[in-house]
Write a protein that binds this DNA or RNA. Sequence first.
DNA 1: TGGCTTATTATACGCTTGAGTAATTTTTGG
DNA 2: CCAAAAATTACTCAAGCGTATAATAAGCCA
Lengths: 242, 242
Amino acid sequence: MPHPPHSSGEKLSRRTFHRASETERREDLIAATLDCIAEFGIQGATVRQIAARAGVTGGLIRHYFDSKDQMMQAAYREMMAAMTSGSIEAANSAGTAKQRLGRFIDANHSASVTDPRMLSLWAAFIGHIRHDPTFAAIHRENYTAILTALENLLRDFFIENNRPEEVARCHHHTVALTGLLDGLWLEATLADDLFAEGELQALAFRSVETLLGLKSGDLSVQTDDTQGADGIPPADPLKKDI
Amino acid sequence: MPHPPHSSGEKLSRRTFHRASETERREDLIAATLDCIAEFGIQGATVRQIAARAGVTGGLIRHYFDSKDQMMQAAYREMMAAMTSGSIEAANSAGTAKQRLGRFIDANHSASVTDPRMLSLWAAFIGHIRHDPTFAAIHRENYTAILTALENLLRDFFIENNRPEEVARCHHHTVALTGLLDGLWLEATLADDLFAEGELQALAFRSVETLLGLKSGDLSVQTDDTQGADGIPPADPLKKDI
DNA sequence: TGGCTTATTATACGCTTGAGTAATTTTTGG
DNA sequence: CCAAAAATTACTCAAGCGTATAATAAGCCA
């Protein structure tokens, strides 16, 4: 039994608004959702808060999404894409396998991935994975995609470097490297103040080189100019401020 | 203006209850809190739900904790202790540094740590770290404790193995190993169905050996009997079910 | 320009939450 | 056995939640 918004007669001024296109408005709402989760946590990401952040009123959300959950799923999809697209593009880019592997590692340390916001978002969504099959599917899809991309890349790399005997161990190398890179990402986003700028990136390069049995600097020193000059200092600037 | 629980006369049977000691009841409530977070997510961990899980009624919670937040903090403290205590005890245990390092790695793959519940709990609390200084302090405390324990262990290890030149790089090794182990923990708890029993543990041993420049099997083959016989098969049972 | 579609606002609804109060009943230690 | 304290019961309360619906304004097309 709906009630009239105001009893009668009174003329109230409504706020003016912009009539946006569907894709534009959806993207705004998704961005606002991610903003709110990162800033206030999953608890603070309420429909009203998200709407306020997007500069609209709450009711509008249901014009673009069937429910709040559906909007959250769309936001999760976008966030995961932002996390993995750079690495996957690097793996499938042009150049030698060695160069692509270097770019793959670099992608894990790009500003958008290392952003502390990302950990908050990632953790907030993890809780949904175990209970909501849709979230589980989105996660699994992205995870296997990046595993596959890296494994194919490593296969190319070993063939390129005349080490065919390592091809059989590609999967193990893939899991180990993924673990290492993910773990360093955790440390970077979770305790960023404990590490110097570029320290973890340099460590990632050296550790991957060691795990793959390469000489130090083999990966980080690129022959083309796409990376700019960021050589790894051979000396160790020991940093301890626990 | 309080009302009497029931108007008059009627004799209602109350549920019998157990009069627990303060510490016992607090532990029950903390365990119930963790159960609810792991099972229903941080959203479903309401005061009423937690009380039901603990087998008490809601009002009792405020007899033991000043607020729900304080109970959550206590739960986080207990959860983090469960995660790190095994590793730290291993690092500080008796035996050679090599043995202790092996136990340290093993601790990361104990059933209680690998339990998928742990990831849900860990992720649920991460969201609080950035906003609540108390949670941030608890996290930082545990993180630095395990970093310190591992770094000291590695120092002992390099000295024990007559490699004093590596002592200067202990911190780097510590961060790399922590990243690797944390990352493999992530993969184990997040996509446990993709890996065979013990596969990630064996991978952890081999990767650590490689990162530290040891021969394959150096760490996993223990001279004492505390570990039981779990030799790492030299052949690679390649597993691919993506 | 004027009408029509619909994106958007504004408001209301039903429900749950965390927190609080006070009286009552049960357990248990001294 | 008795008194102190633990625990239950049964409410209130304000705030917040996601959702639903009616009124309104914006902008496109005839």
